[in-house]
Design a protein around this nucleic acid. Structure first.
Lengths: 143, 143
DNA sequence: TGCACACCCTGAAGTGACTACAGGGTCAAG
DNA sequence: CTTGACCCTGTAGTCACTTCAGGGTGTGCA
């Protein structure tokens, strides 16, 4: 099949497919006489795998590691488990961060319930005075 | 004060301060004879405001809008409220997305509890077969 | 036969919010 | 008079794409 059909099967754009090829996630396919890429069932499976990992917010590095493990089928899957556990840790950490953020945001928001002038608005006062603390490093790759 | 002191007061790097200046978030300060930037109390307040907004994961666009509103102090603060409510909405949406993600991840993870070969590992099978659905557009600017 | 139109190709540049680096200038202390 | 901490500009790199410019290919229809 051509790249458009592959992209449709994996629910992504053709640009993304070409990008994955350049990024080394998807193997370079054969070309026909017109230099068009020509894909088979293996490519569909691989691309679906990649898109599923991305839907789970894994980085290309994490995905590359999983793909590498898949290509040594005799290896033990302990590393796969570790990788997934680490990723679940990232997601948990980000949920925790965002939950704390939400508390801070509603704190700030509470400071203005009425329509008044910007000059007196408690929200802006709050945003000037708030102390963000030093703990705001990003601890996961999830934004 | 010079840029290093300003950065320290706002808990960011001097590169970030210069970046905010180029991005139009922070006004260009005066320069001394040696072409060093020279800041005052107003800059500290403004930069703290920006850093606090960033700690709440607002985009530069959102911050620019808030700064614009601050600079017209007679205006009603209804727009400020709207902006903050919208941002709280983004955070809520992202927490929701990540929570669903976590469920999917633990579903996948559950498929391999034992040490076996990669070829038989249920996790990789799951990642190949999983159907991510079409609803995976990012709906917020939070990653 | 001519042509419109959907699809394919490459390579470069843009996104957001920085970070890092190269290659220089300034200034106070020892 | 030199060391080291600080400052300057400008460019490129990060991540996972998206968009664009400028072309080539292939099919259906008048």
């Amino acid at each position: 099949m051509k790249i458009g059909e592959l992209a449709q099967l994996a629910r992504c754009t053709v640009e993304t497919v070409r990008y994955y090829e350049k990024a080394g996630l998807l193997a370079m396919p054969e070309r026909n006489a017109a230099n068009y890429r020509h894909y088979g069932a293996g490519h569909v499976e691989r691309l679906r795998f990649i898109r599923n990992c991305r839907a789970l917010d894994m980085t290309h590095e994490e995905i590359r590691a999983l793909l590498g493990l898949m290509d040594t089928p005799a290896a033990a899957c302990g590393e796969v488990n570790q990788l997934l556990d680490a990723h679940i840790g990232h997601v948990d950490a980000r949920i925790q961060e965002l939950t704390e953020l939400r508390v801070q945001l509603t704190d700030v928001r509470r400071q203005c319930q009425s329509e008044q002038s910007v000059a007196a608005c408690g929200i802006l006062q709050g945003l000037v005075q708030m102390d963000a603390g030093e703990k705001n490093g990003r601890h996961t790759h999830l934004g």
